[in-house]
């Protein structure tokens, strides 16, 4: 267990020693700050408190999803293209440990960025509105955290797919393109599948992965049941990871 923590640490070392992560982070922070300034200065938006701004800020969560997809797409495949995979896998370590540490490091990255957005939107909101006393604070904060959690579960489903594609095909481009297309055209895919056969759409996991519908009162797809959605999500989560593990474990390294 302790070893896995060390492995996650070195994976983080490799993620954050590359400049792109800091560009992503700066971009996220600046975008949120710009949002705050716009919201503050446009009267018609009628935003009155820090909490309203925080809940609006969740709308840029897809940006975090995109960044996480980028990280997930090459955390395995870049080791192959750099040739460093040979050095990683000739350590006295079983292969699954290397893969699991990479997967967890990638999720930690997404978690870190989510917390950054949460914290940043709170801070920007606090500075620009200074109004913290509307509603019952605790309830608002806990609802906000729930919303972030649900978004994070949605994100996990996409990055797990990206991670799997990249591990299987060793192509970060393919992994990014497929995941991004899926994410952006999800609603059209649901419509098409529904047109062919309503059952097809029912079992399409990305019609279920965003669980916020169950909590914010908007309409859920197919009038769904939470238990069914969760089962589908867990099933795909396990399936994607099993495929990654199996392929990674069995692969003959010939780079």
């Amino acid at each position: 267990m302790f070893r896995i923590l060390k492995l996650i640490y070195i994976e983080n070392m490799k993620i954050y020693r590359r400049p792109r992560v800091w560009i992503m982070l700066a971009f996220l922070l600046l975008l949120n700050l710009a949002m705050g300034l716009v919201c503050r200065n446009v009267e018609s938006l009628n935003i009155q408190s820090m909490y309203t701004f925080m809940s609006i800020s969740i709308n840029i969560y897809p940006l975090i999803l995109i960044f996480a997809i980028v990280i997930a797409s090459d955390i395995v495949s870049s080791e192959f293209s750099w040739g460093t995979i040979k050095l990683l896998l000739t350590r006295p370590l079983k292969r699954w440990k290397v893969l699991v540490s990479k997967y967890l490091a990638m999720l930690l990255f997404a978690l870190f960025f989510s917390l950054v957005l949460f914290g940043c939107s709170g801070l920007v909101g606090y500075i620009l509105w200074e109004n913290v006393e509307d509603l019952k604070e605790q309830l608002v904060i806990s609802q906000m955290l729930l919303l972030y959690l649900l978004r994070f579960i949605d994100l996990i489903m996409y990055v797990t797919l990206t991670f799997m594609l990249s591990t299987v095909f060793l192509s970060s481009t393919l992994a990014i393109v497929v995941s991004m297309i899926l994410f952006m055209t999800k609603s059209y895919i649901i419509i098409i599948l529904d047109g062919i056969n309503p059952n097809l759409a029912k079992y399409f996991v990305y019609a279920h992965s965003n669980l916020t519908h169950f909590f914010d009162g908007t309409e859920t797809y197919n009038g769904g049941i939470l238990g069914f959605s969760l089962t589908l999500i867990i099933f795909h989560f396990v399936l994607f990871n099993l495929i990654s593990w199996y392929v990674f474990k069995k692969r003959d390294i010939s780079v």
Binding site: L7, I10, T84, K86, T90, P92
Partner: peptide, 30 residues
């Protein structure tokens, strides 16, 4: 594998890290 040290073909390292960071990386792995 604890008894084996190896270089397979070219010694590819992480180019964006220093030599020392590379060594630290591998020492933490072991």
């Amino acid at each position: 594998m604890r008894h084996i040290g190896t270089i397979v073909e070219n010694p590819e390292m992480y180019k964006f890290m220093t030599g020392y960071q590379n060594l630290k990386h591998f020492s933490l792995m072991m």
